[in-house]
Design a protein around this nucleic acid. Structure first.
Lengths: 143, 143
DNA sequence: TCGAGAGCGTGATATTATAACATTCACTTC
DNA sequence: GAAGTGAATGTTATAATATCACGCTCTCGA
C-alpha cells in the first residue's frame, strides 16, 4: 500500500467511525495504520512491538482494545486460524467476510456476500460465520 | 452419546487408523474418548485435567500430540474460532468440514462437501478451508 | 463545579501452544 | 540373545496469545 493510499484509507476510516458516533483515537489510528501497512496478517504482539517506541506505554491491553474496536467497526478482521489480524480497506458494518490467504506470500483477499451454506442443519440460525481459505494465490502458484 | 455408541465409535476409529497404517495408542484413544464424550467443543487444557487422574503423566505435549494425531487421521476437528476441539463420529480423510456450532447449547453439527466459494480470486488454489458457523440450533432458537 | 462515561495506563495473571531433550518399548538384524 | 532403530511418550521449561482488575485523566453536559 502506498503512503498516499494509506493516508486516504485512514481518513476514510476516521469518517466511518464518526458516522457510527465513535472516535478513531490516536492509539486506534496508529494500530490501524500498522495493520494496513503490513503485507499480510499481523500478530497482536508484533503490533505491540511496533507501538513500543513510545515511552513506557503499549502493554497488551492497549493493542487488544484497539483491535476490538477496529473489528467492531469493521475496519479489521481477525484470521482465526492464525490468531492474526488483517486490515480491511473498504470498511463495512456487516460482520462476516470470506478470506483468501496465500500461504506463500501472505497476501489476503477479502470477499463479501459469501454463498451461504446450502446444507445447514434444519432450523439452524447463523449469527456469525468464519470462512478462511488457505492456499496459493495466482502469483505464487507453482507453474 | 451413549456408552454403547461411544464404544462403537472408538472401535471404528481404531480400524480407521489401522487402515492408514497407524496405531490408536492408549493415550490417543483416551483423548478421543474424552472428546467424543463431551457435549460440545473441548479445550485442550480441559482434556489435560481429565487425563490427570493418571500418575504424574499428562503434560501439555501429551494432549497436543494426541490431538494432532487425531486431527491428521480425521477423527477430530479443531474449532479455530474457539481454540477447541470436536469429535468427528464418521472418520474421513478429507481435511475440511463445515461446522455449525450452537452458541447456546454447544452442540456441533458437521457437514461435508461445503459449497465452494463462487467468488474466489482469479487463480487462487485452495488447499485448506476453515468454515465455522455460530448461531442457534433448532432446539435453542428463540420462539 | 461536579458527576458520569469513555479511553487509556499499568501490573498481574490466565490461557493456549511448542521447543528441546530424555526415556521406553516394540521390533529387527546380526 | 545383544545391539540398533524408530515411533511414541515422558518431562522440563518456556513461548505466544489474551484477559482481568484497578486507577487515572480527560471531555462533556447538568
Amino acid at each position: 500500500m502506498t503512503a498516499d493510499s494509506l493516508t486516504k484509507a485512514l481518513d476514510a476510516a476516521e469518517a466511518h467511525c464518526l458516522e457510527r458516533g465513535e472516535k478513531l483515537t490516536p492509539v486506534r489510528k496508529r494500530v490501524l495504520e500498522l495493520v494496513l501497512e503490513a503485507d499480510g496478517p499481523v500478530k497482536a504482539y508484533d503490533l505491540l512491538e511496533a507501538l513500543k517506541p513510545g515511552p513506557g506505554s503499549a502493554k497488551p491491553p492497549t493493542v487488544y482494545r484497539a483491535l476490538d474496536f477496529l473489528m467492531t467497526a469493521g475496519l479489521v478482521h481477525k484470521v482465526e486460524a492464525l490468531n492474526a489480524f488483517v486490515g480491511c480497506s473498504h470498511a463495512h458494518d456487516e460482520g462476516g467476510a470470506e478470506l483468501f490467504i496465500c500461504s506463500t506470500c501472505g497476501a489476503v483477499e477479502e470477499r463479501h456476500g459469501a454463498p451461504l451454506p446450502m446444507n445447514a442443519p434444519e432450523g439452524f440460525m447463523i449469527q456469525r460465520s468464519v470462512v478462511e481459505h488457505f492456499g496459493q494465490c495466482a502469483n505464487c502458484r507453482p507453474a
